[in-house]
Amino acid sequence: MALFPIQGIYQDDFVVLLVPIDTEDPMTVVAEKIAHHAAGVRVPPASGELRIKYQGELLDPEATVVDAGVPPLGVLQAVAE
C-alpha cells in the first residue's frame, strides 16, 4: 500500500485535479476519490456507474493502477456509464 498521485478529471467538471489514491485501490474506489472533489461540489453527481477511463480505454473496475500500468500523475477520467 502506498500513496499514489494521479490527475483526476470528473465528468463535466472544469478542472484537472491532483488526487491522492492508494496503489491498492480498485478503480471503483479511484472513481469515488475523484468524484469526492467534484460531484455535488461543482457538478451534479453523475447518474449511472462511474468508470475510469485511461488513455481512451475503460479500465476493469477491479484493476489497480499497478495492474493497469498507470504511472504517477497519469490522467484518469471518471465517467458515468
Partner: peptide, 8 residues
C-alpha cells in the same frame, strides 16, 4: 465550496 485538494 472550499477546496480539499489542488488543481494541476
Amino acid at each position: 465550496t472550499l477546496p480539499e485538494t489542488f488543481p494541476m
